[in-house]
Design a binder for these strands. Structure first.
Length: 475
RNA sequence: GUCCCCAUCGUCUAGCCCGGUCAGGACACGUCCCUUUCACGGAUGUAACCGGGGUUCGAAUCCCCGUGGGGACGCCA
């Protein structure tokens, strides 16, 4: 924990001015849905590229032909675009180092493999091609794997990590680089592509830290100086042990998209998992995050995901949205959810949204929160109804209110309020004696926007009709 | 089992590099205020330096050892 600030200042304050331009890549494999952890890795790469004026590359690691799918590939594209993490090079974006799908780069891997073979750094075993480490060999029984393995006495590999400092790890076993079916393995293609695409910084999850010694060994075998690594901490699942996986609750980006979360809120939230701008600020615009972000400030310890805080961040962004923007996005949400809002006018829809925006935490609350605005068949919360009817004389209050509203002025919240207040005063009662029962009668709910606002919006006829209809059920 | 990474409120974290502040903020939770409901907002409370040694006048901060958590150990990526 202590060392990182020191490293931050020990290096050049503006590495991108003195070194070759930053080139980073996000290299997902389309073997499953896109989850929070992947999104954050992509985000940190993107942030670093934008911060340094470098290049953000999207590379698809689809060498495992058995597990790849086009569907997952599209999820990756869609999720990245939704989050606003646009790539400068990669599928659909072009670039001078393509193709950007590993399944289309076989010729490049063959070429690099030849270099390794020529240097005597490979051998064939069981039909596969192995990478040969340098050093003396001896056999040893591995308890964990319950088999005899060949160990190699090698010098420690040095991993220069922008987040963790210098990490040494001994790589002591040869490993497969080309499968017996002819397909190259992750370790090989990953390193070859990082060389071929001139990647300067490898920003990836800490789960790859142990692999890095293999990768450094390969870089050295190719005679290439390894890039700067930055192994970011993992995101742990909210409940229970271990890192977050695709199966965990709240793990999938797609899910947040469907639930109407604002992508800018999600981005703001996940960049705070393992990084912070310093000071007490949490909600900050992406442009500012870009300017403040740097690798040495990334935490070294894993973070646990917290959906409550995520929801809170989303609310903050929702609250800050210009009303027209809120309305437009709400429209999209209703459409995506297939929730009908009747054939109301744009003005009416916007007016309803104006009442809802300051009250809700997320778009997913919207359909239930506004159901009674769209038609006359809205659900009634029976528990709330029982509670509202449990005290006073609800039937009398409804009748009085309906009568008074007949002549009330519905042009503004204030005029509706004045009418109800006058009625309450005449009867020696409080506003609240009418408010509760009127709300359940006209909305079916116990909570919602101010009663005067929603009366004004609903209009005299509908309000009175609802009051009378509800009163009639109380026989 | 072996190797690697990590360790401040329940959670995310500031403070650590460069030792001296009532250990600060946010989420969550409690109370109060605002209020015609529910939210928002404001105020406030509960709550943490993993343990043990060492260095030092002084350690959350530096060092060591434990312990705990995480990761890796595939012809997955």
């Amino acid at each position: 924990m202590l060392a990182r600030r020191g490293r931050a200042r020990a290096g050049c304050a503006f590495p991108f001015l003195t070194m070759s331009p930053v080139r980073v890549r996000f290299a997902p494999s389309p073997t499953g849905f896109f989850h929070i952890g992947s999104a954050r890795t992509a985000l940190f790469n993107w942030l670093y590229a934008r911060h340094t004026g470098g290049t953000f590359i999207l590379r698809i690691e689809d060498t495992d032909t058995a597990r790849n799918s086009e569907e997952f590939l599209n999820v990756i594209y869609d999720s990245l675009k939704w989050l606003g993490l646009t790539w400068d090079e990669g599928p659909g974006a072009g670039g001078d180092f393509g193709p950007y799908r590993q399944s289309e780069r076989a010729h490049i891997y063959r070429e690099y493999l030849e270099k390794l073979k020529a240097a005597g750094r490979t051998y064939e075993k069981d039909g596969a091609t192995w990478f040969k480490l340098l050093g003396d060999r001896h056999e040893v029984y591995d308890e964990h794997r319950q088999k005899t393995v060949t160990k190699v006495k090698t010098a420690p590999m040095v991993i220069e990590d922008a987040i963790r400092g210098r990490v040494e790890r001994i790589e002591d076993e040869d490993f497969v680089i080309v499968r017996s079916d002819g397909n190259p393995v992750f370790h090989l293609v990953n390193v070859v592509d990082d060389i071929a695409m001139q990647i300067t910084h490898v920003i990836r999850g800490e789960d790859h830290l142990s692999n890095s010694s293999k990768h450094v060994a390969l870089f050295e075998a190719f005679g290439v100086k390894p890039p700067i690594f930055a192994h970011i901490p993992l995101i742990l699942k909210q409940n229970g042990p271990g890192k977050m996986s695709k199966r965990d609750q709240g793990a999938l980006i797609e899910e947040y998209q469907k639930r109407g979360y604002l992508p800018e809120a999600l981005v703001n939230f996940i960049c705070l998992l393992g990084w912070n701008p310093g000071g007490d600020r949490e909600k900050l615009p992406i442009a500012e995050i870009v300017s403040l972000f740097d690798l040495p400030a990334v935490n070294q310890s894993n973070a646990r995901f917290d959906d409550k805080k995520m929801a809170h961040m989303n609310m903050l962004y929702l609250l800050a949205l210009p009303p027209a923007e809120f309305t437009a996005r709400a429209r999209v949400y209703f459409a995506a959810q297939n929730v009908s809002t009747g054939d109301v006018s744009e003005e009416y829809f916007a007016a309803v949204m104006a009442l809802a925006q300051p009250k809700i935490k997320g778009f997913e609350e919207l359909p239930a929160y506004t159901a009674y605005f769209w038609n006359e068949t809205y659900p009634t919360d029976e528990k709330a109804k029982a509670k509202a009817l449990g005290k006073g004389e609800p039937k009398a209050r409804l009748a009085e209110l309906a009568g008074r509203l007949l002549t009330a002025d519905f042009t503004s919240d204030a005029s509706v309020e004045a009418a109800i207040k006058a009625l309450a005063e005449e009867r020696g009662l409080g506003f609240g004696d009418y408010q509760g029962v009127a709300r359940i009668a006209t909305t079916g709910l116990s909570a919602g926007p101010s009663i005067t606002s929603l009366f004004r919006l609903l209009g005299r006829e509908r309000v009175i009709a609802r009051l009378e209809r509800f009163a009639a059920t109380l026989m």
